[in-house]
Structures are given as structure tokens and as C-alpha cells.
Amino acid sequence: MRQFSASPFEMFASLWRNRELIQVSTKRQVIGRYRGSVLGILWSFFNPLFMLVVYTFVFSEVFKARWNPGSDSKTEFALALFAGLIIFNLFAECINAAPSIILSNPNYVKKVVFPLEILPFVVFLSSLYHALISLAVWFTAYFIFFGIPHLTVFYLPLIIIPLGFFTMGLSWALASLGVFLRDVSQFIGVLTAVLMFMSPIFYPLASLPERYRHILYINPLTAAIEQVRDILFWGKAPDFTVLSIGWVLASVIAFLGFFWFQKTRNGFSDVL
């Protein structure tokens, strides 16, 4: 039985060693998502644009919603909501796909010597591509309605990178669990739906009574969503204490998820 390294160094070394395969696989996954459609990959731009228009109309015209009670801006709510939704979708797409990622590629397990550990990373890069397109739409809308974005947008990688570590750690763990427990994918679908409403996406965290806010902070996405909204829309620097804690916890989760995946992957072929 082959032994696979589960060290933190291998976690990065494998991604670097297989970088060309990752690039090709990511490109194939992104293009394959729109294969057969007339507009093709242009849908990756039109989808977030359409959703932004819908959010703007529904929340500003139908519900007359405002993110800040004293604000008269009709687009403020839509852009604040959309910023949070971009972060949530990046996380949710990866987590929802993770439990079935090995099950849907049995040939990689049985017949081909393939670095299985890169599969969750390919899904993450594909989701990141769509998140970046959505961000481009967000920046375009912000420029049209509010002008030049704040310089604090350059803090964005400091928030996205630990979110990526955290997402990858969970993806590796769920990819492995999904092989042995087929109910995991059903459970994760329900969990992400709950997380969407338990995250400050459709409402500001400050709108909740203070005694309930700690419940939302149990959700690991809360800090990322709030900080991304702060740097993109409000021009505030991130809380570096919270950010530092996030980097440490995300790194630990990434290593534990990778460790579990590497230690259990020899059993994949027996189950499949």
C-alpha cells in the first residue's frame, strides 16, 4: 500500500509540482461549465451582472431597503449585499462540490496514477475565477454610481487567502468523507443553505440585537464577509487582530483537512 505524505510542506509542494495539470484542469472545468451554450464563457460575466440588476431592483424599488437607515441611496443596499454574496458563493461552490469530487472521478482513483489532492484545488480555482468576474461587475457598478473605489481594496488578498486556506481544508476533509459516507453531500447542501441566512449577507451585523451577534460570529464566514464589505464599500481597513486569528485558524484547518485526505486516500479504491 502506497504511503502518501501528509506534511504541511507536501500540501504546498504538490500544488506547485502539479501546477501545469492544475492550470489545464481548471481551464477545462471553467469552459466545460458553459459548453454547448451560445454565449459560452461570456455567461460568467452576464450571470453576476444579471443578479446585480435583480438585487438592485428588488431591494431598492420593491422593498425600499437601505443598508444604513439615514441613506437615500438605492444601490447601496444591492452593492453591500452583492459584496457579501460573492464571498459566500466562493465558499459554498467549493463546499457543495467537495463531497462528490472523488466519486465523480473514479477513473482517477482506479486506473490512473493521479494526484487526487489537487481536485479540490481545481474546484476552488474555478470558483475563484467566477468570484473575480463578479468582483469586476461589482467594481464597475461602484464606479458608475459612487466613483473611484477606495484604496482599501488592496487589502482584499489578505482576506481572500485565509478564506482559501479554510475552504481548501474543509474541501479536502469533505472530499474524503464523501467517499465513505454518501449522505455527506445531502447534509452539506442543507448546511450551506443555513449558513447563507446565518451570515450577514442580506443584513448588516449591526442590525441584530447585541445579545445575538455572538451567535453569528460562530459562523466562520461572518468575519470574512464583514471585512470584505468594509474594505470594498466603506473604505475601512480590516481589523488586523481578527485577520491574524483568521490566518492562524485557516492554516490549521487547511493542514488538518489535507492530513485527513492523505491518510484516508488509500481506502478510496476499495470503496469505489
Rank of each mutant, 00 (worst) to 15 (best):
P115W: 10
A97I: 00
F143V: 09
K111T: 15
F121H: 10
L90Y: 13
A131V: 06
Y108Q: 14
A97G: 02
F124T: 01
S100R: 12
F121P: 09
I101D: 06
T140A: 10
F124L: 06
A131F: 04
C94Q: 08
Y142A: 14
A131G: 10
I95S: 01
T140N: 11
N89C: 01
L125Q: 09
V109D: 13
Y142V: 06
S134P: 13
N107R: 12
I95F: 00
Y129F: 15
A97L: 02
V112P: 04
V112M: 10
N107K: 13
V123N: 07
F91C: 12
T140Y: 08
L128Y: 05
L135R: 07
I118D: 11
H130D: 12
E93M: 06
Y108M: 15
Y142H: 11
Y142S: 10
V109K: 12
I95Q: 00
L103D: 08
P115K: 12
I101T: 10
V112H: 03
L135W: 02
N89P: 00
L103M: 08
V123K: 07
A92G: 06
I133W: 11
S100Y: 03
I102H: 01
V113A: 13
L125W: 07
V122K: 04
I118W: 13
E93I: 00
I144H: 14
C94V: 05
T140K: 04
I102N: 00
L125A: 03
L116A: 09
P99Y: 04
V109F: 08
F88I: 05
L90N: 01
N96Q: 10
C94Y: 00
L90W: 03
A98C: 02
A136L: 12
L128D: 02
S100G: 08
V113E: 10
I101R: 05
K110T: 11
A98G: 02
A136M: 09
I133Q: 09
F114L: 08
L103S: 13
Y129M: 07
P120D: 05
I118V: 11
L116H: 10
L116Y: 15
L103W: 05
E117Y: 07
A98P: 00
Y142W: 12
Y108F: 15
N96C: 02
L119I: 12
F143I: 11
F143A: 14
L125V: 04
F88H: 15
I133D: 13
S100I: 07
L103H: 03
